[in-house]
Each structure stands twice: as structure tokens, then as C-alpha cells.
Design a protein around this nucleic acid. Structure first.
Lengths: 263, 263
DNA sequence: TCACATTTGTCCGTATGTATC
DNA sequence: AGATACATACGGACAAATGTG
């Protein structure tokens, strides 16, 4: 952010490459270094979800910074989705992985600022799901088929018990992304699904619609297993267009969330 | 974040709706209220990009909180991409709009965390650029054509002066995404290009390759302007496959970025 | 060039609320 | 119920950076 944005370094434009090198040594704030250090430990796998971090005081003194600085680093990590904090004894910071949640929160801000519309979202989702399906048809294996099958089975069970299969239906698309074996798609799909869940959280859950979605997932999965590519694409498109219908009404409202007091 | 996540409120599940109402009154931390208030002002348009915020001390006393709390709120807004801060006299917080950057940074974190590989990246990029092109062919207008044309012109100029057109070539794809008029794609392309720039920053810049890229961009743009869809897709694919070649060698590393000390 | 004012960045001491034992 | 441990929050202080006269 600080590094990349300095496109006009006031000095001559001729030596841009060298100027960029100098920019990288620009002094960083202490809390940035601290949070980067923690992030590094997480990426390296030395800190894993569920791990408890020492108290603010201890971390501060161990890292050689003040409490205020430590707090700002903690805030930074918290808002980025790397840790969550709890008050009281035995409280403190715990490593979590809610980065995708943080992303979707920022995307909601973008929607709020009218930089993105529901239509944008629907188009992007359709395109990305198409890409995912293309990869799935190439790379799916028995294990992922089994996971998807189990998903539709438990969804079907819920429907039979007159319950909506909301969670299962969202999970189906995440499983599809995993079956593509491409982590970029996994991240994108999970982000889109988080947003989707947020959109739908304000509406009444509809058993009939939920049941219909389960049916379409079952059909889609069958087409995938049978390697009937063209049918799979047709089913996917039809499915997503129906889901789009269920989002209708949102397009008319300019704001997605009435209140922005969350998080 | 705090509100939405509480799907299991320990109390009976039956009164979820009422429980949710009570959840909204859950005590929030001071810095959250402060940052939410500033965000509200931005969303309402009362604070606009370029506007200078009062100093930390003044805002703190005006809002009735301590400076520490104010600083945490500022960190929040900064990370979310709503403000940037500058040190020194006449410094302070200024309303900006770098939400795009913030989302892109978090996406990079997510990719890092999920251990996305270079191969994942290449596949995803091809798919996403295809999707972008599809939308561009539908929605492009004269203004965006002009921006793209200017981009290739200045790239061509650099090549003629024996300079690599690195920045321009990266920018071309960002402009393409903007021409799709879909903010989601803009975010994705921005992220992909950041990754791309990161890959290439470690290699020697190659004038001959850079020149070749410019040529392909020119051809692609021409096909787009002429509405020659099929040729545009062929050119895009060919272009990206050549770029992929230039990334060879990275595939062996499991991590995308060696260092995460950015931002 | 130099001093000065302003503002962020950082540290410390202290107090309070809250969750756990 | 009381003690403990921790995050949360306030206020004061100084250092560092930066623009201005």
C-alpha cells in the first residue's frame, strides 16, 4: 500500500526501476512490522488456527514495543481476519482464519459505496462458476465426487424433514471449487458464497426454493459424474439464473444493507 | 462480524429472530463505534475523497474518546481503505478511496494462506481474463477504448526508446477489467496483476519480450474495437500462454510470494 | 539554511470492565 | 463470592517527521 502507490516519486521518471528499489526501504511503522511478523509465522505454519497468543503485555515486551503499538498490530491482524480476541481471564488473541469474512465485509463496503451492483455480482459469479466447472470436468476425482454426493444426500434429507438446506446448498458450491483443485477458485468461491449468504440473510428462507436448489445440484452432479460436459454447463447456467431471480428486488434497492453497523 | 457469526446463541434456537434483535444491542468497542460513525459520514457523502480529517487529538476529544481509541479507529479505517495518513505538519488523515487495494491485499493473504501455486494462478488468470473479455466485448464504450488506445500508444513509445513498458503492460489488463464495467472483475484483475508484478519483479526485464507483449496488446485491442470476437479470444489465449512461458521456473516453488512484508 | 509549529508515532502509568476459576 | 488475568480505555509525555516562515 505504501510501497506500490508511489508511482510518481517526484524525481525524474527515467530511473523508475531504481526509484522503486529505494522505495522498498521506506521506513515502516512498528505496528506494521509486528503484524507482518505474526502473519509470517502464520504463513509458515508455526502459528495455526486455534493457537493462543500470549497476552498483549507479554507480546509487547517480547517484541520490544509498547502496549499501544502492540494493540494497533493486534487490531490490524483482527481486522484482516487472522486473529480474534476475547476479553477476560483466559481471553486474549487466538489464531483464526476469517480472512474471507474480512474480504466480504470490504466488498459489502464497496457495494455500499455503489461501486458494485448486485448485477455485477451475479455476472461475476456466473463467469467464475463456469470457469470452476470447466476445471472440475477436467480434474475431478472419486474423493471429491463422494464429498459432493454426501452433500446432496444430507441436503435431500433435510428437505424430506421439511427443513431448508441453506448451509448444504452453499457448501455444494464450495465443494465444487475444491474439486477444481485450484486454490484461487476456492478462495473466490468462498468469498462469493459469503457475500451470497449475507444477501440472503435478510430474506425469509423458502422451503420450496431450497428444495428446488437441491434438485438442481443433484442433476448437475450427475452430469459431472457422467462427464456430460455440455449438459453440465446448461444445468449450471439454468441454476444460477434461477438463483438470480431469487435475488431480484435487491437490484432495485440501491443499498444492500440498511444498516452498516455490523462488524 | 460479531453479529452475524452468532448463529448459535446458546439459548434455544427457536427464538432466533428475537435473539438476533438482542444481539444488535451487544456492546461494541469504542473504536468500532467511532469508525462506524466516520464510515457513515463517508457513505452519506458528507466526507468525500480529498477531505482532511481533524487531528487525532481533536477528533478524540470531539468524539469523547481517548487518543488510543481514536488511533485504533483510524487503523481500522486505514486498513479498510477509507483513509490514508501522513506524518508531520499539515499531515493527518485524508479521505481516500483505496478499498480496491485493501480487498486485493486481503485476497493476496488468502491465496498465501491457502497455499495457491503458480499453476493455480496461471489457470485462474486465463479463465478470469476470458470472462473479462466476454464482458468487455459486450459493454465496452468509446471512453474505455480511448484509455486502452492511449495505453498502447505510450507503451509503444517506450519500446521505441528502448525502454521496457512494464507498467503500461500491467495497466493494460487493469484497463480491460475496467472496460468490463464490473467492479468484481476490477478487483480480481487488480489482485492478479499485483501477483503478476510480484512474479516478474524478481526477473530481469526483457526488452524483446516487453515489445512482444505490446504488439499483442495492440492486436487484441484492434480485434475488440472491430468486434471480431473470435479473433479476440484467440489472441488473448495466445498472449496469456506466452506470458505463462515467461513464468516458467516459478512453478516449482510452492509459495507465491517469498516475502509478505508488503503493506 | 534554520528554527518552529503541527501532527503522527510510540511508550508508560493507571484505572476499569469482564470473564474464568 | 472473591481473586485473578486479561482486554479495554484514558491521559500524559517524548520522539520523529514534515511543512512553513
Amino acid at each position: 500500500m505504501t510501497k506500490k502507490n508511489s508511482k510518481k516519486p517526484k524525481t525524474s521518471d527515467i530511473r523508475t526501476s531504481k526509484a522503486d528499489i529505494f522505495n522498498t526501504v521506506k521506513k515502516k511503522r512498528a505496528f506494521e512490522e509486528v503484524s507482518a511478523e505474526v502473519k509470517r509465522l502464520i504463513f509458515k505454519g508455526l502459528l495455526r488456527p486455534g493457537d493462543q497468543l500470549p497476552s498483549e503485555n507479554e507480546m509487547a515486551s517480547r517484541l520490544g514495543v509498547g502496549r499501544q503499538t502492540m494493540r494497533e498490530a493486534i487490531r490490524f491482524l483482527e481486522l484482516s481476519g487472522f486473529i480474534t480476541t476475547k476479553k477476560g481471564a483466559k481471553g486474549g488473541a487466538v489464531i483464526t482464519d476469517t480472512v474471507l469474512n474480512s474480504i466480504s465485509n470490504l466488498l459489502l463496503d464497496a457495494f455500499q459505496m455503489k461501486k458494485a451492483t448486485v448485477h455485477d455480482f451475479i455476472v461475476a459469479r456466473l463467469e467464475i462458476e463456469r470457469a470452476v466447472l470447466r476445471q472440475v470436468l477436467i480434474r475431478i476425482d472419486d474423493e471429491n465426487i463422494k464429498l459432493l454426493k454426501n452433500n446432496t444426500l444430507s441436503a435431500r434429507k433435510k428437505i424430506e424433514n421439511k427443513q431448508v438446506a441453506f448451509h448444504e446448498n452453499v457448501e455444494f458450491h464450495k465443494l465444487l471449487a475444491r474439486a477444481s483443485k485450484n486454490y484461487i477458485f476456492v478462495v473466490l468461491e468462498e468469498t462469493l458464497m459469503t457475500l451470497m449468504a449475507d444477501f440472503l440473510s435478510h430474506r425469509q428462507s423458502n422451503l420450496r426454493f431450497s428444495s428446488r436448489v437441491v434438485k438442481m445440484h443433484e442433476d448437475l452432479l450427475q452430469a459431472i459424474v457422467k462427464k456430460n460436459d455440455s449438459e453440465a454447463f446448461v444445468l449450471l447456467e439454468k441454476h444460477l439464473l434461477e438463483v438470480e431471480e431469487s435475488l431480484k428486488g435487491f437490484s432495485k434497492r440501491s443499498e444492500i444493507r440498511q444498516e452498516l453497523d455490523s462488524y
